[in-house]
């Protein structure tokens, strides 16, 4: 009797298991079929080009004629290419400015918009405006702003009796000028991210902090900042990867000049591939950009993972 019922339950359990298994399979299929369109686009427009880029990077090719397989020769040439290292250094400056200027600036702007000052709505629009403009328009606008003779920036400097600066033609000032424009254009993007994250911070945390006697600054450092940490991490990844990939503003404003003072990986890749007719070498630069960006992104994610583990969140 007992053994029979036991058998019965075992059989039923097995059946349930089977049904569950089937259910799970079904779930996977449903998920997959929902993902398919995105996967399709992703494969064709992202995965495929990345793979072909790596493929092209192994050839000596002008983009149109015959391809000659040269193995890793392009890579060894790249590693001993001074311009490449110079461009990488400029990208590094770009990353520093993005992470340590743009993101804090975005945070400050978001905090201003959350404080209780008057004219917040106007400020909101003003802050966000630069991000809405196309980069080419921004580039041209700032070329005129930085005009050495008639540009408002120099006129302003002159007004405060400083000497005019030939912004875009000096090798140091050109890079600084573009970095200023970059910060101006992209800080609003981080501002939006931070604003969205700040809305999500529960009011109770602030109330509890107040009861514990926290003032404004303390509330910021012990409530706001920790709550924003995930946003800061994802912003940093976006900033690093974005800085490595950037091209348009540099192309419009200086085209990698003056000399090669503002050459970055993006403009150098472009110049090799489309101006010097070295598609293979250009692809090698693109492949290196991809590898560097990947390593950076994984690095940041790993650091974040460790941080969360330490806090016992993960």
């Amino acid at each position: 009797m007992i053994s029979e019922s036991k058998l019965e339950t075992a059989r039923m359990e097995a059946e349930v298991k089977l049904v569950r298994k089937k259910q799970k399979k079904k779930d996977i299929l449903v998920i997959l079929s929902f993902m398919l369109p995105a996967l399709f686009v992703y494969t064709i427009f992202i995965l495929y080009p990345i793979i072909t880029t790596f493929n092209y990077s192994l050839f000596d090719w002008n983009g149109m004629g015959e391809r000659v397989f040269v193995g890793l020769q392009n890579y060894t040439a790249l590693l001993s290419d001074n311009t490449f290292w110079h461009a990488l250094k400029n990208n590094a400056y770009l990353i520093l400015v993005s992470v340590f200027v743009q993101i804090p600036l975005g945070l400050i702007m978001a905090l201003v918009l959350f404080s209780s000052i008057r004219g917040k709505k106007v400020l909101n629009v003003l802050f966000f405006l630069p991000y809405l403009m196309s980069t080419v328009a921004v580039g041209l606008l700032w070329i005129f702003m930085f005009d050495p003779v008639n540009g408002p920036v120099n006129k302003l400097l002159n007004f405060f009796s400083f000497e005019s600066i030939h912004w875009l033609s000096g090798s140091n000032s050109a890079l600084i000028a573009i970095l200023i424009v970059m910060a101006w254009q992209f800080a609003p993007f981080y501002m939006i991210l931070f604003k969205a994250a700040m809305v999500g911070i529960p009011e109770e945390l602030y109330e509890a902090a107040e009861i514990d006697g926290a003032n404004g600054t303390k509330k910021f450092f012990y409530v706001t900042l920790p709550s924003l940490m995930p946003t800061i991490v994802s912003s940093s990844i976006l900033a690093v990867v974005g800085s490595l990939k950037t091209f348009d503003l540099f192309y419009v404003m200086t085209g990698g000049g003056s000399g090669n003072a503002t050459e970055i990986l993006g403009t150098y890749m472009y110049r090799q591939a489309f101006v010097n007719f070295k598609m293979g070498y250009g692809s090698t630069i693109a492949a290196m950009m991809f590898i560097i960006a990947l390593v950076c992104a994984v690095g940041i994610l790993f650091l974040d993972f460790k941080r969360r583990k330490k806090q016992g969140v993960a």
């Binding site: 041209l140 050495p148 033609s169």
Partner: peptide, 14 residues
């Protein structure tokens, strides 16, 4: 030459 000439794009008309 006008100052800063190396930074001026021709097409933009400066």
């Amino acid at each position: 030459f006008n100052p800063g000439f190396n930074g001026l794009p021709y097409d933009a008309g400066s």
